[in-house]
Each structure stands twice: as C-alpha cells, then as structure tokens.
Write a protein that binds this DNA or RNA. Structure first.
Lengths: 207, 207
DNA sequence: TGAAAATTATTAAATAATTCACAAATAATT
DNA sequence: AATTATTTGTGAATTATTTAATAATTTTCA
C-alpha cells in the first residue's frame, strides 16, 4: 500500500465518485473499458491503478462495483472514519459544515474553531460544536490528522499550531500565503488558481 | 509556447500568486531559491519552468518580479482578457460573481445564464447581465472559450451546447457526472474529492 | 579594474508515470 | 465439453517530468 504513486492517489477520488454513481444507478459490474469512457482515463491506467490495491477484477468479467467501493474504503480511508476539524466558521466554513453527504465521504468534521464562536452562523441542525480558537489544544480530537482551513487571515500561526498538535494534512481555502511545515501535506481549493490553470491550458493548446 | 508540459502549466498559477504577493509587499527582485522556499517547489524546477517562456532571469541577480508577472500575462493569459461566462447563478454562482479581484486574474465574467434569471440573488453592484439559459446561443460573447458551471443538474445538455458554441474549457463545480466532448478541457473544483485526495495521501504515507 | 561569489540556463542523467503487448483466466457459445 | 470471445493483470517499452551537474553570465567587493 505504501508504494502507490501520487498520480494514482489523485485519481482514486475520481474513480470513487464514478463508482458511487454507478452503484446508485443499480450497476453491479463494470469493465475497465466502460469506466474509462466514463471518467476519461485510459482503461489500462485504471487497471494498473486498481491492481495496486490487490487483484479483485475477474478476467472476462470485469469488476464488481460494490466490492470495489468497499476496497477503496478499507485500503485508503481507514473506513472513511477520519476525524477532521474545521477552522473558521464564516460563510464558507458554514457551507462546508452543512454539506449533506459529509459523513460517508472520508470521515467527518468532529468540531470547529473560530475567533468568535458565539457568532456561529450555521444552522442548528448541524450538531458540531464550535469552540474558540484558543481552545484548540484542549478540544482537538485525539488522533486528528486533517484540518480544513477557512479563515481569512492568520493562517501561518494556526498551521504551526496544528503541526505541533500532530495534524498531517490541510485542506486550504485560504488565499493567504503560509509556509508549510516539514512533513505536512496541503491541498488548495482555489477557484482563482483553477480558472487560471484552465485559461493557461486552453491558450497554450490554441497556439 | 506550445510545448509547455501539463505539469508546468499547473504550477504557473502558484508562481503567479506568489509573485503578486511579493510584488504587493514591495519586493522588486527574487531568486529562484527564495521563491522555492516560498512555494515549496525545487528551485531547479522553477528555473526550468520559467525558461520555457524565454530567458528573462539574470545570472547572479535573479528575476525581476514585476517583469515576470507581465510575462506570465503576455505568454499565457492573452493579457488576462479572457471573456468568460457563468452558468447557474445560485448561491455559489453569486459568490463567484461577487469575487473581488476577478478582473485582473485571467479575464472576466461577461455574462451569466440561469433557468430563472429573474431570481438573481447577487448584489446589484455586480454589473453582469443574467440571461435565461435558452438565450445561450444569442448572448454568448464572441470568442468565448471558458465557462464556469455552477448548476445542480442538467450539466450534460449544457456542456454539449457549449461545445457546439466553441467553448474549450469548463470550470466545473457540479458533482454530477457528464461526458466531456472531444477536445474540451475540464477542471473540477470539488471539496469532497479534494478532502478524499488528502485523506488517501495522508493514510498512504502513514502505512 | 579584476577576481571571487552568486545565480541562471541548459545538457545530461535519473526518476516517475503511462501505455503497449500479451499471457492467464473467465465467461459465453455451440 | 470444447471452442471462441472477453477481459484482467503485469512485465517491458515508452514517454513525461524532475533533478543533478555544470557552463555561462552578472554582480559584488577588494
């Protein structure tokens, strides 16, 4: 499991999303060639990616959709039970808290932190406690490895704290710059950069 | 310009963001080694990436920050004058329309489309007309190549229409599946997949 | 002004990722 | 039951990307 390449790892969510859709539509088995057309990734790449987790396709038959979904859970997501925290409960943070399918995706947000926790704007139906950021150390769930960062400023200080508390990965919605401590992983969700990527790519192909 | 690799193209927005920040802070020149620490990309990779657009670093001196920014604009973004459209003016679409630094990023959203344009929820200060989706063909700006997709359903039909109208790239906020027509490029902005990517990567390193 | 230090650009080497080609296994068909 | 069609899994080949090594250029400082 250790030697799964970065490129492959980044395709797994794509497969998972497609498989969930297929499963929901009642599809029981799928060929690598069908999936290929579905997700726009060469079938041989798909087979190679899958085979890294073990052999569970059947020659002449294909893959069992639901079995595949379970294997993804088992091999990659510690049964999707990651205990995550959210930092910053403004408009965006709230939207994320309210996201419906949250729980069976990769784990769940256990608690949130904010500079003004009393100003929580999210709906009461979401049963996630919001603490003051000063209580980070006391309230962070044991073994928490993932933090979602939705604050407008002051990212560096918080990232450094998180690092000391053992957090390994950050989903970053901030556009503010911060230095990533050694050993941490960061994924940016950045509309502006995404649009630029696309514009650059489209223009570079045109010329 | 044609042979810039995909990997490099995806790093350009990162560089650009960092350079803008440096410029705003009054930094006039930067070394590849400094930038390297700033963005967590090896300095040699940075120099290689930059050299693909021409030679504008100076040995023993480094790079001129503002010159670099201009070169990015000239070489990659057609002077950031991309005419884009937005499909779907709900909560998310509105948030995107209101995004402040929009104009100097990669171009601008010229107009938007929705099934219920009269229900436009965005603030009047944003001077972007919203048309009914039926008027797509008549109202799409000439030469428009980029569309931002923020609709909850019915993506496939719209993507096919956009393809016929000459749109080349889609920034996709939809989680709905659609088949990407030949020759189009898509970038997903997907919180769920991003979190999964991170969880998978963190777990795969742990083991 | 000249020598030493710094830094980019680029060729070559190393590493990573994808794709091909086909053996092995299963399913479908006669 | 035997034969033919499919379809996966993987070693080998290819392609893409990153990194190392170093030549060339500029700056800095005595």
């Amino acid at each position: 499991m250790t030697n799964i390449s970065k490129a492959t790892l980044q395709r797994y969510p794509i497969y998972l999303k497609a498989l969930r859709k297929l499963s929901a539509d009642g599809t029981k088995r799928v060929l690598s060639s069908e999936l290929s057309e579905y997700v726009n990734i060469k079938s041989t790449t798909i087979r190679r990616d899958f085979s890294l987790m073990g052999q569970f396709g059947k020659q002449g038959y294909g893959y069992d959709v639901d079995e595949l979904i379970n294997i993804f859970a088992r091999e990659l997501g510690e049964d999707y039970d990651e205990k995550m925290i959210l930092i910053g409960v403004g408009r965006l943070g709230t939207a994320i808290l309210n996201y419906n399918n949250w729980d069976y995706v990769a784990g769940e947000i256990v608690c949130a932190f904010d500079l003004q926790p009393e100003k929580r704007s999210h709906e009461p139906k979401v049963n996630v406690p919001v603490y003051h950021i000063d209580q980070l150390k006391e309230k962070i769930p044991p073994g928490c490895e993932i933090a979602i960062l939705c604050i407008p400023s002051g990212a560096q200080e918080i990232v450094d704290q998180l690092h000391e508390l053992g957090v390994k990965g950050i989903v970053n919605f901030t556009r503010e710059h911060f230095v990533l401590p050694e050993g941490m992983i960061k994924k940016d969700v950045d509309v502006v950069s995404t649009i630029q990527e696309l514009v650059f790519e489209v223009n570079s192909i045109n010329k």
